[in-house]
Nucleic acid binder design. Structure first.
Lengths: 145, 145
DNA sequence: CTGCTTGCAAAGGCTTTGCAGAACA
DNA sequence: TGTTCTGCAAAGCCTTTGCAAGCAG
């Protein structure tokens, strides 16, 4: 009773397929982590993922969680969000979108890409090319007066 | 010989005045740090600032550099840039502008505010208000083929 | 003088690493 | 069976903190 509640339910087979598509070989632990991270679009810290994974059946060590998340990020399965000075957030939504960051609560909220219109005039300097654009809208609790 | 080369030269009096304007009382160390940080628009890590300050006459401890930069940020003298997972950059350019971030080199370059047109459609959720918008354009070395 | 500031070093939080045992193909 | 992966704990990096001595007004 009282089991996990994922929004989208990815089958083990689907997860394995996704991992393989990103050149990540499947292991029990990676599947568990992927299940948490990929099933739902949200922003989780390594610490949170560690906790969520270990609420479940399988126990995964801290080292493996960190290493796996780093691997996932390198392989493009998740996106690393660097917003908070002392925590990396992992976002399974790899497609272009942006974020509200509540500086008071540390809360992170999605902004749909279509809600932000960024007209980039400058081209990347030198011989560099644009890889992505992150827009972080820092918000703060409005004073209730 | 072989002295420092600051772009704009702020006099001690000017620095003191700026600090005071931001409710920061003046001390020898804060003035030294401010001289480095405020004289020129650039992106420096605490580590770099520590090194630059201690190249000079006055020696400032690591703790004081970190604490002072935190203080400066809180008082609006500088802006903390959270872009690199394991380093905070301090930007003396407090006015609205954005950044190129070269993921290969870690290099940070300014984008003038006028070069980016962000049309923010979504309003901040709840009773929150927008404090600022950070746009980070991740760039990467173009493959020379 | 009285309080704020500095500095040293130790502590702290997050993440990475080394290496032996375990799991996978 | 060979290779890759996991896990534990220790190490590492950046930053913060505690507390005594020092400087500012």
């Amino acid at each position: 009773m009282a089991m996990v509640e994922y929004e989208s339910s990815l089958t083990q087979t689907q997860i394995v397929s996704i991992l393989r598509k990103h050149d990540v070989s499947s292991t029990q632990q990676r599947i568990e982590i992927a299940r948490i991270v990929l099933s739902k679009h949200q922003h989780l810290s390594a610490e949170q993922i560690l906790a969520m994974v270990n609420t479940e059946t399988t126990k995964v060590s801290k080292a493996t969680v960190y290493n796996t998340l780093g691997l996932f990020a390198r392989q493009g399965l998740v996106r690393e969000l660097v917003i908070d000075p002392n925590k990396i957030f992992y976002d399974s939504n790899v497609s272009g979108h942006h974020h509200f960051y509540n500086v008071d609560t540390g809360e992170l909220t999605d902004i749909s890409n279509s809600d932000v219109d960024v007209n980039m005039l400058p081209k990347a300097p030198d011989g560099s090319l644009i890889e992505g654009v992150d827009v972080i809208v820092r918000i703060r609790q409005a004073s209730q007066t």
